[in-house]
Measured scan of single mutants.
Amino acid sequence: GGTTSGLGELPSGWEQRFTPEGRAYFVDHNTRTTTWVDPRRQQ
């Protein structure tokens, strides 16, 4: 941990993952979708 950059926890059902290249993306298990956009930035 320690790399949350002050955004806090992800919404319920979300998970942060990384591509083999090390790029972060976000998985929404509620809708079984993925996005490059941090859901915390859409609030």
Results as ranks from 00 to 15, higher is better:
residue 28 D to W: 00
residue 30 N to F: 05
residue 20 P to V: 11
residue 22 G to D: 06
residue 34 T to S: 09
residue 3 T to C: 11
residue 14 W to P: 00
residue 7 L to W: 08
residue 13 G to N: 03
residue 25 Y to N: 03
residue 20 P to G: 12
residue 39 P to L: 00
residue 10 L to D: 04
residue 31 T to H: 15
residue 13 G to S: 04
residue 43 Q to H: 06
residue 16 Q to N: 10
residue 20 P to F: 04
residue 15 E to K: 04
residue 6 G to N: 14
residue 23 R to D: 15
residue 13 G to T: 04
residue 20 P to H: 14
residue 25 Y to A: 00
residue 6 G to A: 13
residue 24 A to V: 11
residue 3 T to F: 11
residue 14 W to R: 01
residue 19 T to G: 06
residue 15 E to L: 03
residue 30 N to Q: 07
residue 11 P to L: 01
residue 4 T to H: 13
residue 30 N to D: 08
residue 19 T to M: 05
residue 10 L to M: 11
residue 28 D to E: 03
residue 25 Y to W: 08
residue 21 E to T: 09
residue 34 T to F: 00
residue 20 P to L: 11
residue 23 R to N: 15
residue 20 P to I: 12
residue 7 L to R: 09
residue 1 G to P: 08
residue 18 F to V: 12
residue 36 W to V: 04
residue 31 T to A: 08
residue 37 V to Q: 07
residue 15 E to Y: 02
residue 34 T to N: 04
residue 24 A to M: 14
residue 40 R to H: 04
residue 34 T to C: 08
residue 41 R to C: 15
residue 3 T to A: 11
residue 25 Y to L: 03
residue 7 L to H: 10
residue 6 G to F: 11
residue 12 S to Y: 05
residue 7 L to K: 11
residue 43 Q to S: 12
residue 3 T to Q: 10
residue 6 G to R: 11
residue 5 S to A: 08
residue 21 E to L: 05
residue 18 F to L: 10
residue 17 R to A: 12
residue 27 V to C: 09
residue 41 R to S: 14
residue 22 G to T: 02
residue 39 P to I: 01
residue 8 G to W: 05
residue 14 W to D: 03
residue 21 E to C: 06
residue 8 G to S: 07
residue 7 L to E: 12
residue 41 R to D: 15
residue 40 R to S: 06
residue 24 A to D: 11
residue 10 L to W: 05
residue 23 R to G: 12
residue 37 V to E: 08
residue 14 W to H: 03
residue 10 L to A: 02
residue 15 E to Q: 11
residue 31 T to K: 08
residue 14 W to V: 08
residue 9 E to A: 13
residue 3 T to G: 08
residue 36 W to F: 15
residue 37 V to N: 12
residue 16 Q to W: 04
residue 7 L to G: 09
residue 35 T to C: 05
residue 5 S to P: 11
residue 4 T to A: 10
residue 19 T to K: 01
residue 1 G to L: 05
residue 23 R to F: 11
residue 15 E to F: 01
residue 13 G to Y: 01
residue 14 W to T: 04
residue 11 P to A: 02
residue 8 G to E: 09
residue 29 H to A: 07
residue 31 T to C: 07
residue 35 T to E: 01
residue 15 E to R: 02
residue 29 H to R: 06
residue 5 S to Q: 15
residue 26 F to Q: 01
residue 33 T to G: 04
residue 20 P to D: 14
residue 33 T to M: 12
residue 9 E to S: 08
residue 12 S to R: 09
residue 16 Q to E: 12
residue 15 E to H: 05
residue 20 P to Y: 04
residue 41 R to M: 13
residue 6 G to Q: 15
residue 14 W to L: 03
residue 2 G to E: 11
residue 40 R to P: 04
residue 13 G to H: 08
residue 34 T to K: 04
residue 2 G to A: 10
residue 24 A to C: 14
residue 40 R to M: 07
residue 12 S to Q: 09
residue 4 T to C: 12
residue 19 T to N: 07
residue 8 G to K: 09
residue 33 T to V: 09
residue 26 F to P: 01
residue 22 G to E: 05
residue 17 R to T: 09
residue 10 L to H: 04
residue 33 T to Y: 05
residue 14 W to Q: 02
residue 15 E to S: 07
residue 10 L to N: 02
residue 35 T to N: 01
residue 14 W to Y: 05
residue 42 Q to W: 13
residue 39 P to T: 01
residue 8 G to Y: 07
residue 1 G to Q: 14
residue 11 P to D: 03
residue 18 F to A: 10
residue 16 Q to L: 09
residue 26 F to C: 01
residue 23 R to W: 12
residue 27 V to Y: 08
residue 16 Q to V: 10
residue 27 V to P: 00
residue 27 V to A: 06
residue 4 T to W: 08
residue 24 A to S: 10
residue 38 D to T: 03
residue 29 H to I: 10
residue 31 T to G: 07
residue 4 T to M: 14
residue 42 Q to K: 13
residue 36 W to A: 05
residue 11 P to W: 00
residue 23 R to E: 15
residue 15 E to V: 06
residue 42 Q to E: 13
residue 25 Y to P: 00
residue 11 P to V: 00
residue 39 P to S: 00
residue 23 R to Q: 15
residue 5 S to G: 09
residue 30 N to L: 06
residue 3 T to D: 14
residue 17 R to Q: 12
residue 26 F to D: 03
residue 28 D to V: 00
residue 38 D to V: 02
residue 15 E to M: 04
residue 23 R to I: 14
residue 3 T to S: 12
residue 32 R to G: 07
residue 1 G to N: 15
residue 21 E to I: 07
residue 6 G to L: 09
residue 28 D to H: 03
residue 43 Q to W: 12
residue 25 Y to E: 02
residue 27 V to T: 07
residue 36 W to H: 10
residue 20 P to T: 12
residue 8 G to Q: 09
residue 24 A to W: 05
residue 27 V to R: 03
residue 31 T to R: 07
residue 42 Q to Y: 12
residue 35 T to Q: 05
residue 20 P to E: 12
residue 18 F to W: 10
residue 9 E to I: 07
residue 18 F to T: 12
residue 28 D to G: 00
residue 17 R to G: 08
residue 26 F to V: 01
residue 5 S to R: 09
residue 4 T to P: 06
residue 32 R to S: 09
residue 16 Q to A: 08
residue 17 R to M: 13
residue 25 Y to G: 01
residue 27 V to N: 03
residue 8 G to A: 11
residue 25 Y to H: 02
residue 36 W to N: 07
residue 32 R to I: 05
residue 8 G to V: 10
residue 21 E to V: 05
residue 24 A to I: 14
residue 10 L to R: 02
residue 36 W to C: 05
residue 39 P to D: 01
residue 13 G to L: 03
residue 19 T to L: 10
residue 37 V to R: 07
residue 1 G to R: 09
residue 23 R to M: 15
residue 22 G to N: 15
residue 22 G to S: 06
residue 43 Q to Y: 15
residue 31 T to E: 08
residue 31 T to Y: 01
residue 11 P to S: 03
residue 3 T to L: 11
residue 14 W to N: 02
residue 34 T to Q: 04
residue 35 T to S: 11
residue 11 P to K: 00
residue 39 P to C: 00
residue 38 D to Y: 03
residue 30 N to G: 09
residue 24 A to H: 10
residue 37 V to Y: 15
residue 32 R to E: 08
residue 10 L to E: 02
residue 41 R to A: 15
residue 23 R to K: 15
residue 5 S to N: 14
residue 30 N to M: 09
residue 38 D to C: 07
residue 43 Q to G: 15
residue 38 D to G: 03
residue 24 A to F: 10
residue 37 V to A: 08
residue 40 R to I: 04
residue 29 H to T: 07
